[in-house]
Structures are given as structure tokens and as C-alpha cells.
């Protein structure tokens, strides 16, 4: 079996695990004025699977992920969640379905500690008459559970996150995304600006999530160290559409890069 499949003009269903995908996006089109960011992009995300979305700058992967997360609407195409067509108008619609996104900038408040960041905007609080006093103990118990689930019990819950390392901050951002038990977690460049060992830590964390049955979508430029090694399936996008799909275990970084830029040397080498 060749390591990847080039898509023809007709829609080809992506090779994925069996069963109904959590997310099924087919032939999604999206334009910003005269810029056709997505020209028929497709993506399936199954439970327990880590899908990498790769492509050069402008390939449309960020747009696809933002459509998935409800940041952008889409012009045409089908978006199904757990087999049912959905209308997602804004990020909170996506959150309500169980789709959480960890953005590249992490959106953490450096002066707050891990527990406060985890619950920011959704604090467990007492009655309004006492000014909605934060139920710190309840929050902390919940945070500890999540941290234990992610095997991050070592992480201090009471230090300001600004005093933490990049890897620890990334982990806290991921922990926040799974706090309310989502079904799909989208991670935008989770290993950018991380050291090699910190990236490895994030990889193992993502695997833990997938093993628990979450669907994980990762957008990354870190092909050689992260994408090929830490994901299950790689979807390559170019010019707003899917151009190739790999099983991560069957492919080398070179082949993925070649598919991204449109060269065919990788395929020749593989053949």
C-alpha cells in the first residue's frame, strides 16, 4: 500500500478508524472576500485518535480549525458532529457540543495560579449576596482530579503561571480545555516555542487524552519531531484543500513535507 493517497476532484472519504466520527467535515468551503481560504476541505476526527493537520502557511489549516471551533462560519459543505449535522455560529456553540480549543498564545493570565486559570470565567462560586465568593476548595479538588488524569500531579496549583516554564503553561492550557469533559480538543501549535523535552511531555499528555477516548486535532509545523512521532494520522492541506492523508506510523517527515510543498520526491523515494 502506498504511504499516501492523492485526492482526485471527486470527494474521497478519508481513511479513518471504523465507526461514526466525532467530527465529520466534508467539502467545506470558506472565502474571505476574494480569498478562497477553503476550497472543499474535509476532515474526520474519531474518538481516541490524534489527527495532525499540516500544511504550508496559507494552506487553510488554521481556517479549517477555526471553522471547527466556531470562530468562523463556513460558506458551503457539511459539518457533522457525532453523525448529526450541526450549526455552529460561535465558539460557545462549539464549547457546548464538547469542542475545546487551545490557542497558540494559550490565553493564560500570568498573575493567576493554575486553579484560577483553569476556572477563569466559570468559577464555582457561592451565593451572589456574598459577592459570589469563589469556592476555592471545590475548584482545587476539581483541578486536582484533572491534573491527576493528565498525570500532572506534580504541577503546583498555587503558583502564578507566569512563574512557570513554557511546557508547564502549555499543560495548564490543555488541562483547562479538558476541565469540562469535552469530546474533541483542538490544539494550535502546541509545541511551538517549546524545548525538545517539553514538547515530548506535551506529546505524551496528548496521547493520554486520546487514550481516554477524546478526539484530538493538532495543527503543527513541527513535522519531524512531533507530527510524525506523536500523532495517528496526518492530513496534509494545500491551497485550501486536502492533498494527502498518511498513517503517521507509515511515513517519514520528508514525505509529509513533500506533500505539503507539492514535490513528489518523497513519493519517488518511497516507491
Amino acid at each position: 500500500m502506498p504511504p499516501f493517497y492523492i485526492f482526485s476532484e471527486e470527494k474521497v472519504l478519508l481513511e479513518t478508524k471504523n465507526g461514526t466520527p466525532l467530527i465529520s467535515m466534508r467539502n467545506i468551503k470558506k472565502s474571505f472576500g476574494s480569498v478562497h481560504a477553503l476550497q472543499g476541505a474535509s476532515l474526520n476526527v474519531h474518538a481516541g485518535e490524534i489527527v495532525a493537520l499540516v500544511g504550508d502557511n496559507g494552506a487553510g489549516k488554521s481556517t479549517l480549525v477555526k471553522v471547527m471551533a466556531g470562530v468562523h462560519g463556513w460558506d458551503a459543505g457539511d459539518y457533522e458532529f457525532e453523525g448529526k449535522p450541526v450549526k455552529i455560529k460561535n465558539p460557545s456553540d462549539a464549547n457546548n457540543l464538547g469542542i475545546q480549543t487551545v490557542y497558540q498564545d494559550l490565553a493564560l493570565c500570568d498573575n493567576l495560579d493554575a486553579v484560577q486559570n483553569l476556572f477563569l470565567g466559570r468559577e464555582l462560586a457561592g451565593p451572589k449576596i456574598f459577592g459570589s465568593r469563589v469556592r476555592r476548595a471545590a475548584c482545587e479538588v476539581r483541578a486536582k482530579e484533572v491534573m491527576a488524569r493528565m498525570r500532572l500531579s506534580n504541577l503546583s496549583l498555587s503558583r502564578p503561571v507566569g512563574a512557570m516554564s513554557g511546557g508547564q503553561r502549555q499543560n495548564i492550557a490543555i488541562a483547562r480545555s479538558i476541565l469540562w469533559t469535552p469530546k474533541v480538543v483542538i490544539l494550535d501549535e502546541p509545541t511551538a516555542a517549546l524545548s525538545h523535552s517539553a514538547a515530548a511531555q506535551v506529546s505524551s499528555l496528548i496521547r493520554t487524552l486520546a487514550d481516554e477516548g477524546l478526539g484530538v486535532v493538532v495543527v503543527s509545523h513541527d513535522i519531524h519531531h512531533f507530527v510524525v512521532e506523536a500523532t495517528d494520522r496526518i492530513e496534509v492541506m494545500r491551497l485550501g484543500a486536502n492533498v494527502a492523508s498518511f498513517k503517521s506510523s507509515d511515513v517519514t517527515g520528508e514525505q509529509v513535507v513533500n506533500a505539503m510543498v507539492g514535490g513528489d520526491e518523497g513519493a519517488n523515494l518511497a516507491g
Binding site: D105, A107, L108, C109, N111, L120, F130, V134
Partner: peptide, 22 residues
């Protein structure tokens, strides 16, 4: 102690993060 106070600190440090947190 209150959520309002926490939100004051959050807005002061990173208003974009606070906005995205609702």
C-alpha cells in the same frame, strides 16, 4: 475572595484571555 475580584486581576493581566474566558 470574589469572582469579581478575580476577574479584575485577570483583565489587568491579559484582557484578551479574560474576554475569551467569557
Amino acid at each position: 475572595e470574589t469572582t469579581f475580584g478575580l476577574h479584575i486581576y485577570a483583565v489587568g493581566n491579559n484582557d484578551e484571555a479574560a474576554r475569551r474566558a467569557g
